[in-house]
Design a protein around this nucleic acid. Structure first.
Lengths: 143, 143
DNA sequence: GACCATTGCTATTTGCGATAGCCACGCGCT
DNA sequence: AGCGCGTGGCTATCGCAAATAGCAATGGTC
């Protein structure tokens, strides 16, 4: 008995969205694992690099990661030697990439660029230009 | 100082896909919570209803849920009185919906139907018909 | 009848997110 | 200047989904 069971959910948009996101995530997770980076690491490093003197809370706000969850994440990045904190006042610190962090970031960027290219390439070209606009419509972006 | 930090990842398709999926998931989770159902519950119940005498492993295979993770999930559904097991042989059992399970399923279907409608409605109509085909291209469907 | 894959399960771990609570600091208000 | 509210950074803990390892027993195949 092979698979007499059919996926009756396969035509539900929400379900298919979830499956697609999962497949994408698994792929990217695997690619980043080869340089010992998690997706959340990559996201935070890229946000730090792309903004000037961001604080932990600010990064958390853009990425929708709560302060409480930023703490251990940043601790890992710190321990890995990729970021460092530079006090802005007695309360908050700016996050900065170290030399090692910059190097790691370049490796990450290379992987991401290739990954996003591969991703879009999988979408038949007649649908490709509609992909991002459709997704934006579903993402409740906080401004 | 409001939010001087911009989301530099916002143009990456994979990232936006993930954000859209998250928004969708959060919405559906909330709607199903009102009838005390989790998304995974709903998925399993719908698969059981849509196939004849499926076993736990078969359902797990279509939904990509490992056997080990099916066990506690089914235990919950069983405890809730929504499913029951009918032995096929001494090794496997067919999963069946109870009366209560059928009733719950109807409530689930109502919510899902509405949800999927709302979801598609958010997508500007010029992109709408491209949505599912694009996602299918990303989902490595196991036949 | 023997062997091997499969079934259903327990137990444990990891990743990610959410909640609650803490202390200290800054900022705006009067 | 002083007060108080909101915020920043953090610890600790929980929930959920998924993954791994291992196990006993069965079914199917040769």
């Amino acid at each position: 008995m092979t698979t007499m069971v059919s996926d009756v959910l396969a035509e539900l948009p929400g379900y298919v969205l979830q499956r697609a996101a999962n497949a994408m995530l698994a792929d990217l997770t695997g690619r980043l694992a080869e340089i010992d980076v998690r997706i959340s690491d990559a996201a935070v490093l890229m946000q730090i690099a792309g903004n000037s003197d961001p604080t932990s809370s600010e990064i958390g706000r853009v990425l929708t990661i709560q302060r409480a969850n930023m703490a251990p994440l940043l601790a890992r990045l710190d321990k890995a030697g990729w970021i460092r904190r530079s006090p802005l006042d007695r309360k908050s610190s700016a996050l900065l990439l170290t030399e090692e962090g910059q190097a790691k970031l370049e490796a990450i960027r290379a992987i991401i660029t290739r990954f996003e290219g591969d991703l879009m390439a999988r979408i038949p070209q007649e649908h490709r230009s509609h992909f991002m606009p459709a997704l934006y419509a579903l993402w409740d972006r906080p401004i």
